[in-house]
């Protein structure tokens, strides 16, 4: 596991200047975006957003894209495939009985 595998900050958030767009910001942004941040991290992040324009913009863009992917990139299974699979599986089950 690389050095990026664990959070580089605890619930206090990055100890850096509160208004600069840093690697720590980015890491936190992704955690919040993916709902992987702790409650403390979330609070810190949204507090930070108030004073950090770049993070604010980036976060909005990332949220918009994530939402679009969810809405636009789905696909339904072709008609009949479920029935075909069900039949094949039951058939294979009978053979193995």
């Amino acid at each position: 596991m690389g050095s990026t595998s664990t959070s580089t900050f605890d619930d206090q958030g990055p100890s850096k200047d509160n208004s600069s767009f840093s690697a720590d910001c980015l890491e936190l942004l992704n955690l919040v975006l993916d709902e992987e941040a702790s409650e403390g991290q979330r609070k810190f992040f949204f507090e930070h957003l108030k004073g950090c324009m770049p993070c604010h913009e980036q976060f909005n863009i990332d949220m918009a894209i994530k939402k679009m992917i969810k809405e636009r990139c789905g696909k339904n299974v072709p008609e009949g495939l479920m029935e075909t699979i069900r039949a094949k599986v039951l058939q294979s089950a009978d053979q193995h009985e």
Binding site: M1, G2, S5, L26, N30, D34
Partner: peptide, 21 residues
């Protein structure tokens, strides 16, 4: 893959996606 790799790959993927968009 390790979680750290998941996170870095995701981050990189998002940047690439944004470049395309």
């Amino acid at each position: 893959i390790p979680i750290g790799t998941v996170r870095s790959r995701l981050h990189r993927a998002r940047n690439l996606l944004k470049e395309r968009l």
